[in-house]
Amino acid sequence: MKLACPAPLWRHDRVVLGHGSGGKLSAELLRDVFLPALGNEILDRMEDQATCTLQGLGGGARIALTTDAFVVRPLFFPGGDIGKLAIHGTVNDLAVGGAEPKLITAAFILEEGLALADLERIARSMRVACDEAGVQLVAGDTKVVDRGKADGVFITTAGVGLVPAGRSLSISAARPGDRVLVSGTLGDHGIAIMSVREGLEFETVLQSDTASLAGLTRVMLSACPSIRCMRDPTRGGLASALNEMATASGVGIELREADIPLEAAVKSACELLGLDPLYVACEGRLVCAVPARDSERCLAAMREHPLGRRAADIGAVCEEHPGVVTAKTVVGGERVVSMLAGEQLPRIC
């Protein structure tokens, strides 16, 4: 008997929602469409932000550049809104690269019929977020499309920051023996969004964790300049961030499931909906790899910051199984934590 599964194997010829999930399909889109057409030495590094030197920029500092798009539904959710999310998301992509966020631009795609009061609310919220993070929004653009061609507001941003001389963080820098730390509970944002979607009426209203991480990374890097790399686990959650780290660094990662901090409400909602919190998005958390000798100091610095109170050591980087993330389960078994395959939650950031 032939042991192959003979069903047809088709390639996607159209974009499906899973292409935006931050998991394997998103990675395929990059690999098959964007990198072949646009790839270059900087883009190919696949960091959350590009860092490069510019002629005329003195003192050994490098420039960090990032861009991000926001299509969250609903526009206003417990703990935040699309404007706040846009600023935080952009700032965080710079901050986890060790950059000081400086400037932001924003382009707005508005749907015909959007209430101006909503737009004002979003703009004010962006201003507050910018002031908190110490960045200036210095350029913008507005386009309006026919009703039905967008969903209220879409926001696209660019962010510029400066990486001080001598600092170099990279997703490919994790080394065996490093400790893996997270700054707080996981999945709060994704579940908060999901809980206000139609049809899901939870008793507890969970707040999104959306926040600017620039203050936290500043404190961490000054207490512990040896941090190898940081990521903010947005789409695809912690599992995707760590898989990217393991692959880029050519190392294995071993987690202890029992030590991963989770809000009780997130845990319950995930049980109920059949979701794995390791794949649910955060918008104000980071995960980092730190040399073991400095990890206690780093953890202490994180816990002193309001955004790092529930910071925890959740595992270690290892030499074995390069490119693979494993977890010791709560009952003492073992499993592999793979990349998100399809989509888990639609349109959360």
């Binding site: 692959t247 059949g274 074995e320 199984h321 390069p322 490119g323 693979v324 494993t326 499993r335 592999v336 934590v337 793979s338 395959a341």
Partner: peptide, 23 residues
Amino acid sequence: SSEGACAAYYLYGRHVNREGAGR
């Protein structure tokens, strides 16, 4: 389906060569 045996094996990494070489 997430309840399917193949998907469960895949999701929790039973396809991965744990000795290295990765995915």
